[in-house]
């Protein structure tokens, strides 16, 4: 019970909730699940808040807990989701093209292993360096690199990042 620290934590929660909710959405694919994930993770973080010195450490640790928690949820299969290996044919372009595109990306993300998905989100949405991702995910730098590579390859299979996200060609 430390009102000062609690207020500090409350400020962090209120200030960073939307950003964490966005991160949670990319991990889970559903907004209400994302909110639940953020609240669950922040609750866990609260019990360890005294060992976290700076705001950056708090946010980084929160992301770690979110990744681990979403992975645990997935293992428990409490959502009852059944990801498929092959996506349905991409829809033809329409006036709702943007929405379809979002749906396609979500579906493609759903086919990825949870930790691969989290790695891609941390790398390409949060713009974190691989070393920091390794720290958050609790794995080696090599694992991060291979997860990124496999994840992008999988998205490419679904014609999602075909042209723009292909590995750069070596010159010469």
């Amino acid at each position: 019970m430390d009102p000062g620290r609690d207020r500090e934590f409350a400020d962090f929660v209120d200030g960073r909730f939307t950003a964490l909710q966005r991160f949670g959405y990319l991990l889970t694919g559903e907004w209400h699940l994302a909110e639940d994930l953020v609240q669950t993770s922040l609750t866990k973080v609260w019990f360890h808040r005294n060992s976290l010195r700076s705001g950056n450490a708090l946010e980084s640790y929160t992301r770690t807990v979110m990744v681990n928690t979403s992975t645990q949820w997935w293992r428990r299969k409490w959502k009852g989701e059944t990801p498929t290996e092959h996506l349905p044919e991409p829809a033809a372009p329409s006036e709702y093209g943007v929405v379809d595109d979002r749906d396609l990306l979500l579906r493609a993300l759903a086919t990825l292993p949870r930790r691969t998905r989290a790695t891609l989100v941390l790398r390409y949405f949060e713009d974190l360096p691989e070393s920091e991702i390794a720290q958050i995910m609790g794995c080696s730098l090599g694992t991060v690199k291979s997860n990124v590579s496999r994840g992008l390859a999988k998205l490419r299979e679904h014609h999602l990042v075909a042209a723009v996200s292909a590995p750069a060609q070596k010159e010469g």
């Binding site: 909710q21 979002r102 949405f125 723009v164």
Partner: peptide
């Protein structure tokens, strides 16, 4: 090369719904 993926991610999370309660109170 991955700017496109980042853009797609950003589009995906562009409209988050408002939280169902004050976040800190809920936590």
């Amino acid at each position: 090369m991955t700017e496109d993926l980042k853009t797609r991610f950003e589009q995906l999370v562009a409209d988050p719904p408002p939280p169902s309660a004050v976040p800190s109170e809920a936590v």
